[in-house]
Structure formats: C-alpha cells, structure tokens
C-alpha cells in the first residue's frame, strides 16, 4: 500500500513542479528514488509535526499541492490543531498521509497504534478521508486526492497487505464504495486493510448459505449514502468492519445514516476496536485475534445474529486466501 502510494506520487511529481512531499523524519528507504529524482520537491522537516502541518498549509496556499507523510498518529493527531486551523479551515491543498493504520504496528505498542484517527478526522470540516484496503485502492485514492483541490487525509497500511482487487481501479470517484460481490441477506461494509478479514468472513458466509454482499469503502468521508441506504432497505443485517475505535469511526458514520432512514431497515453490527487500548504485545495478526477482528470472529458473529449454525473452517473459511470475483 505504501509502495503504491509512493509510486503514484513519483509519477505525478514528474509532471507537476508544484507538488511537494514533506516527511516528518519517517519513511526510511521508502522515498529514496523520489528524493533522488526530485531533490527540490522533497523536504524532511525533522521530527516536528506541528511545524510540518503549518508549513504545508502555507506552502499550499501559494498554489502548491503538498503531501505530508508520517506514521500512525504523528501526521495528524500530534498536530491536530494545526490540521484543523491551518489546513482544514484555510482549505489548503494538503494531503496528510498516515502510514501504519490501526494496529498494524502491533509490537510497537499503543503509541504506534492508530485507532482513533478515523473518528477524530471525520469531525474536522472540509476534510476528505481515504482508507484504502489494498495496493490498488491506495494508488487509486492517491490519484483521487491529488486531483481534488481540498484537504485530504489518507490512512495507509504498513505494507504487504493482501490484495482485495485483482487489477487497477480506473478513475476512482471520491465517496464511492466498491462492490466485491453482491448479496441479499446481509451486507458487509469494510474499510482499510482489515477488509481482507471482512472478505474472508463474507466468502465463508456465502459458503454457509447466507447471501452476503461485500463492499470496500476507500473513502470514509464523504460517505456513499445512496449505497448504504439501498442495502439497509434490502438486507436484514449490515455489518461494518474497521481497524479503529467503535466510537465515531467508519461504523459510526454508517450508523448515523441508517439511524436517520425512515421505515423498515436492516439492523447494524459494528466490528471495531471497542473503545480500549491494549497493553498486550503481539504481531498484527495476533492483535487482530485479540480484538476479535479476524474473519473467523466476524463470521461467528454474523452466523449467530442470522441464527444459522455453521463452522468457519468447515465451510472452507480457513482456506480462503484470495477472492473469487
């Protein structure tokens, strides 16, 4: 996902002398060729994120497109007020990149777990929020963010995410969910790299006889309201999956839309991190199990809610490594 971002940016900078990349002393090795080929467009501002955000806003207000890059909470939450005042209020053309979404930096500890950023950034006016599921979505939203003259927040994974898509996504429209497969009983909506777990659950549910639709949401704000309303009317159950706090994030955004919908509608279950920090150490995969974010966990929860008796492994869920389209 990170490489897809850098590769896309490298293509763009070759054609645009007003594109800048500021990094907060993060991304060792990642930007070597970008820096070598564009020394005037790459600035390591040091470990000083407040200044990075304010400088980016000033640079952008002079007619430039400015990408800022750091890890986890450092690129936005560390300097949240600069993001709010300098970037968002001024509608500065700044793209804030956070790498290492959710709990992907498992063993590094909670300072490096980015588990509230979707919630907090959603509440900032003028901010478009992207949360790609894989390398193809990462490339697509990087391009979409570049093309729109507005502040954006891009939440990237740590790297080496499993692919959800099988090919490049052309002309991605901001705010649109992407259908992976359709269904009528329940709809699984997911955002970010955890979409891989959602996809495993969705596929196993279909194998167990539940007609489950599955969509990824590369954009978290603005939301694909029409699609959510359509499936909330059509299905019995909506499931949201994200690597973020339950409060205020992707699932909350969908809950807000469904709550305001009149008439008969689906009930909603949110799979997310339940408003807690962990002091448990472990790999990304280990922590996904700890927080019950694995495909197995999602499958069990949905099967129970839909009152069917099925086993994830027995329906072939354990063997699901890639998706059929």
């Amino acid at each position: 996902m990170r490489n897809a971002f850098v590769n896309t940016l490298s293509t763009l900078v070759a054609e645009d002398k007003n594109l800048y990349l500021l990094v907060g002393d993060m991304g060792f090795g990642l930007f070597n060729s970008f820096q070598e080929n564009n020394p005037e467009r790459f600035i390591n501002v040091g470990i000083a994120e407040q200044n990075m955000a304010a400088v980016a806003a000033g640079l952008a207000l002079e007619g430039n497109t400015v990408f800022v890059y750091s890890l986890a909470n450092f690129s936005a939450l560390r300097c949240l007020e600069q993001v709010r005042n300098c970037v968002a209020y001024h509608q500065a053309n700044v793209k804030i990149i956070s790498a290492g979404a959710g709990i992907s930096y498992g063993t590094l500890g909670i300072t490096h777990h980015s588990t509230e950023d979707l919630s907090i950034m959603r509440a900032v006016p003028n901010m478009i929020i992207f949360s790609p599921a894989d390398a193809y979505e990462s490339a697509a939203v990087t391009l979409a963010a570049y093309k729109v003259d507005k502040p954006c927040y891009l939440r990237l994974g740590r790297g080496r995410e499993s692919l959800i898509h099988q090919h490049e996504i052309d002309n991605y429209t901001i705010g649109k969910a992407i259908k992976i497969f359709d269904g009528n009983d329940c709809a699984i909506f997911s955002t970010g790299a955890i979409s891989y777990e959602a996809s495993r659950a969705a596929k196993a549910l279909n194998a167990a006889g539940i007609s489950a639709a599955f969509f990824t949401f590369p954009t978290v704000k603005p939301m694909d309201v029409e699609l959510i309303e359509e499936y909330a009317r059509k299905c019995k159950m909506i499931v949201t999956v994200e690597e973020n706090n339950t409060i205020g994030g992707f699932g909350s955004a969908i809950a807000e839309i469904i709550a305001e919908l009149k008439g008969e509608k689906a009930f909603l279950k949110r799979v997310a991190i339940n408003d807690e920090f962990t002091s448990v150490v472990g790999s990304h995969d280990y922590l996904k199990s700890y927080y019950k974010l694995k495909g197995e966990n999602i499958f069990d929860m949905v099967a129970k809610e839909m009152s069917i008796s099925a086993d994830f492994d027995a329906v072939g869920g354990g063997a699901t490594n890639c998706l059929n389209h």
Binding site: A56, G58, N85
Partner: peptide, 18 residues
C-alpha cells in the same frame, strides 16, 4: 486567519518557502 498561538509563524515559514 490566526488566533491559536504559535501557528501563524509556521504558515509564514511555508509561505516564505514557497
């Protein structure tokens, strides 16, 4: 626009850099 202290200086540096 400013008002929250210590932020206009950073934006000014960005404008000067541009």
């Amino acid at each position: 626009s400013t008002g929250s202290l210590g932020q206009g200086v950073g934006m000014a540096a960005g404008i000067a850099l541009a």
